[in-house]
C-alpha cells in the first residue's frame, strides 16, 4: 500500500477553506495592484499569518525533541517591548533588532537550561516564563502602550518589496534556511533521535542536552523575530496583549502540520501549512460574517476534523467501513 504524505490532510483542509470562501464571496481570491503592490485577501492572510508561522517554526523543533514551549507569547511581548524602548531612546534599527532577537535567545536559553540541564518538565519550565515574561515586558514599558514612530521599523511588517509583502518573504527565508540546516546536515536527524528516545540517542553518542537546549534557543529567537513583526505591524508595543494565546496557535499549527506531540518526527512544511490554515480560518470567519460569539465553534470543528483524519486509528476505521461496503 502506498504511504500517503502526512501533508495531505492539512493541505486538503486549506484548499477546501479557500474554495468555501471563493464560493461565498468570489472576490476572496482576487488580488489587485494598489499603489504598485499586491492587494487582496490572500495577501492579508500571508501577512497576518507570517507571525504565527515564525513562532510555529521554532515550536516545531521544540516539539520534535519531545518538549513544548508555552512562553513564546510572552517572549513576543518582551521582544516588542525591547524594540519600543530602544527605538524611543534613539538607538539604531540594527541594534534594536539584534537586541530583540537577543532577548528571545536569552529567554530560550533559560527554558533550555531548565528543561535540558535541570530536568524540569517542559510544560512547567516554560510556564514559568509564560507568566513571568509578560510581567517583564510590562515592566520594560512601564505598563503603557508605547507608540513606535519609525518608518523603517514599520516597513519590516507592512512593507512591500517589488510589490510583494516583505514579512512573509522574511519568514519564508527563515523556513528555507531552517530546512537546509536541518535536512541537508545531520542536525534534523539528531533532533528527531533525541525526541524519539533521549537515552538511546545519548548512548549513541549524541549530546542530547545540548541539542534540546539549541531547540529552545532557536524557538526563543523565532518568537523574538515574531515580536518584532507584531510590534511593527501596529507601530506600537502592547506588552499586555501582544502575543496573547500565540503559543496555542503555534502548537495547533505544528500538530495539524503532521508533527507528533510525542516528539521524534517533524515536518517544517507541514507547520507552514498549519499556520496558514489557522489564519485562513480566522479570515474566513470575517468573510462569511460569522458572529464573533459563535466563531470559535466552526474553528474547533475544523481542528478536530483535521486531527481525526490524521489519526491512524480513525483512518483505519474509515477504510474498514469502505472495505465492508465493497465486499457487500
Amino acid at each position: 500500500m502506498k504511504v500517503r504524505s502526512p501533508l495531505l490532510w492539512p493541505l486538503a483542509g486549506f484548499v477546501a477553506l479557500l474554495l468555501l470562501n471563493a464560493v461565498f464571496n468570489p472576490a476572496f481570491l482576487k488580488i489587485t495592484l494598489l499603489d504598485g503592490h499586491l492587494y487582496g485577501v490572500p495577501v492579508d492572510i500571508l501577512v497576518q499569518g507570517s507571525r504565527t508561522m515564525l513562532v510555529a517554526l521554532g515550536m516545531t523543533l521544540v516539539i520534535a525533541t519531545g518538549g513544548i514551549d508555552l512562553s513564546v507569547g510572552s517572549v513576543v511581548a518582551i521582544a516588542g517591548a525591547v524594540c519600543a524602548v530602544l527605538l524611543q531612546d534613539g538607538h539604531g534599527l540594527a541594534l534594536t533588532l539584534v537586541a530583540a532577537v537577543g532577548a528571545g535567545v536569552l529567554a530560550g536559553s533559560a527554558n533550555g537550561l531548565l528543561v535540558a540541564r535541570l530536568g524540569v518538565q517542559p510544560i512547567v519550565a516554560t510556564l514559568i516564563l509564560m507568566v513571568a515574561g509578560r510581567g517583564v515586558a510590562q515592566l520594560l514599558v512601564d505598563g503603557q502602550v508605547i507608540i513606535i514612530a519609525s518608518a523603517p521599523f514599520e516597513f519590516l511588517a507592512n512593507g512591500f518589496v517589488l510589490g510583494l509583502p516583505l514579512a512573509p518573504l522574511l519568514v519564508a527565508a527563515a523556513y528555507v534556511s531552517a530546512h537546509l540546516l536541518l535536512r541537508r546536515t545531520a542536525l534534523g536527524l539528531f533532533v528527531e533521535a533525541v525526541g524519539d528516545n533521549e537515552q538511546a540517542s545519548r548512548f549513541a553518542g549524541l549530546a542530547a542536552a545540548r541539542i534540546k537546549t539549541l531547540a529552545y534557543v532557536f524557538c526563543g529567537a523565532c518568537a523574538g523575530g515574531a515580536g518584532i513583526l507584531t510590534a511593527a505591524n501596529i507601530r506600537a508595543a502592547d506588552a499586555y496583549r501582544a502575543g496573547e494565546n500565540m503559543e496555542l496557535d503555534a502548537i495547533f499549527a505544528v500538530v495539524v502540520g503532521g508533527t507528533a506531540l510525542t516528539g521524534g518526527r517533524f515536518l517544517i512544511l507541514g507547520t507552514a501549512i498549519g499556520a496558514l490554515l489557522i489564519q485562513t480560518l480566522t479570515t474566513t470567519m470575517y468573510n462569511l460574517g460569522v458572529p464573533p460569539a459563535v466563531a470559535p465553534v466552526p474553528k474547533a470543528l475544523l481542528i478536530i476534523g483535521v486531527a481525526l483524519l490524521q489519526s491512524e486509528r480513525t483512518t483505519r476505521w474509515l477504510r474498514g467501513l469502505a472495505g465492508r461496503k465493497e465486499a457487500a
Binding site: 496583549r241 479570515t283 470575517y286
Partner: peptide
C-alpha cells in the same frame, strides 16, 4: 453592514478592518 470582534486589541482592529475593506 458588518460586525466582528477585534477583541479590544489594536492588532485585532487592524486585522478585522483589513478583511472588511476587502469584503
Amino acid at each position: 453592514i458588518d460586525s466582528q470582534s477585534g477583541d479590544f486589541r489594536r492588532a485585532g482592529g487592524k486585522e478585522v478592518m483589513e478583511a472588511f475593506l476587502k469584503k
